[in-house]
Simulated scan of single mutants.
Amino acid sequence: MWYERLQRFLYGRYGTDKLSIAILVAGLLLSLIGSLLFWPITLLADALYIWALFRTFSRNIPARQREYAAFLRFWTPAENWLRKKKQRFSQRKEYKYFKCPSCRQELRAPRGRGKIEVTCQKCHNVFRTKT
């Protein structure tokens, strides 16, 4: 019975997305900082919680989608950069990462091959490097 009422209430609402989760995480961090250092910061955390709830229960879906698209224009490059750094860190024992001296393209080669001659795929510059 209560589940059906909840479903009826949530019908036509926007729901959660990455922006809402990011707002909640920021609120959690501010809440922790506020409890340790300066208590008025927790009021800002509470405002972020309210904003996340407002976005979740909003029926103005086009406005929420515009906010989310603006957030993704910022978040997607940052997420890709973090993913690339994580991949590079996890492969650090198998591959040596380096940059082409002429075009600064990031390249990788298997470790343990000694000195090798590398041809950059972007500018076709040939150079020697140690792996």
Rank of each mutant, 00 (worst) to 15 (best):
A109H: 11
S31C: 02
L82Y: 08
R66V: 04
P101W: 10
L30S: 13
Q7P: 01
G34D: 09
L29K: 12
L72C: 09
A26T: 13
E79K: 15
R88V: 11
W51N: 04
F71H: 10
N60R: 14
N125Y: 12
K130G: 13
F9R: 02
W81V: 02
M1R: 13
S31L: 10
L32Q: 13
I23E: 03
I23F: 08
L30V: 08
R64K: 12
R104T: 13
P62D: 02
T56K: 11
S20D: 02
Q7T: 04
W2V: 08
W75V: 01
A70E: 06
F71S: 02
F71K: 05
C120V: 00
T119W: 00
T42C: 13
R83Q: 09
F127K: 06
L72F: 10
Y95N: 06
T42Y: 06
G27T: 11
K122H: 09
L82G: 04
T42L: 03
K130L: 14
L44F: 15
L48H: 06
C103Y: 04
V118Q: 06
N125Q: 14
L29N: 07
L72I: 10
R111V: 05
R128F: 14
R8C: 07
L107R: 03
T76V: 11
A45W: 02
N80D: 03
F98Y: 03
E106T: 05
Y11P: 05
I21Q: 11
R13W: 03
A63F: 15
R55F: 09
I33N: 03
F89A: 15
K122D: 02
L43G: 15
S90Y: 07
C103H: 01
R55M: 04
H124T: 12
G12R: 01
K85V: 00
A22I: 01
C100P: 03
I23H: 05
S20Y: 00
C100V: 02
L28K: 04
Y97K: 07
L36G: 14
L30W: 09
T76Q: 14
T76K: 11
G27M: 00
T16Y: 11
A22G: 01
Y49H: 06
L19A: 05
W2G: 00
